[in-house]
Amino acid sequence: MDEFILYALLAGLGVTVAAGPLGSFILWRRMSFFGDTLAHAALLGVALGLLLGITDLTVGVVIVCVGAAAFLVVLQNRTRLGNDALLGILSHGTLAVGLVVVSFMENVQLDLIGFLFGDILSVTTTDLAWIYATSGIAIAILFKIWRPLLSITIHEDLARAEGIQVTRINLLFMILIALVVAAAMKVVGILLIAALLIVPASAARHYARTPEQMAGMAVVIGTSSVVGGLMLSLAYDTPAGPSIVVIALVLFLISTLMPNVGRQV
């Protein structure tokens, strides 16, 4: 196997292992749009990071994503607009600001197309190290806060009354999404990150009876999408990131045609 394919595979797997369980939580909390918003905000994070001379892109992405989440809370308290409107504004607003900021950076080389659509076939060992570091940290934190996060997801007031540190756990959850967005950027690109979070988890819902089963199945489906997408890309010379999402979409559609196992739980 060529080295670049092996690297691409490893990169994809590194991301889906974290994206499966996190994507499940995003679905359970009805935050699909939120994942999209943070993904779009990531471009601004990259641009600002480069402007300020931060070589590690993850740092800029995480800071801007957490900032966007905080800004959302401020907006929620200051307007009567619904969440969907606010997320739509933030999502496309941050993307636009990010594109404008990028245009100012004449002296910095920035592969804009690579950031928007991903460039999994050009992944380097350094990229791999970053992906596995971010993804690994995200999984470790998620494992540690799994139970309280699940309680908060079911009923926030009940969790708070039972003594769970709701604000702290919610903040950690935002940071986890930001970490995975940063890791997934190279694989599918900013425009399709949300798909990698949501589509495998949605397909997994059909086969799951417990939250853990759904998270596990989401990893299996996400991983299969990465393998299938790369094969599709190699065979027909299609763009790798979108091909991965196309396979995930097909797996989702198949799940809806399966006998109603998951619907009963």
Binding site: L27, W28, R29, R30, R147, L150, S151, T153, I154, H155, D157, L158, A161, E162, R205, A208, R209, T210, P211, Q213, M214, G262, V265
Partner: peptide, 27 residues
């Protein structure tokens, strides 16, 4: 120790959850 029973609790249908697991989450 407080045991709280909220007025309304509906679990999102996206979340697969059995009664046993839900009760087990309390501790």
């Amino acid at each position: 120790v407080i045991g709280y029973m909220p007025q309304r609790l509906s679990v999102d249908t996206n979340l697969p959850l059995t009664v046993r697991r839900f009760i087990g989450l309390a501790g």
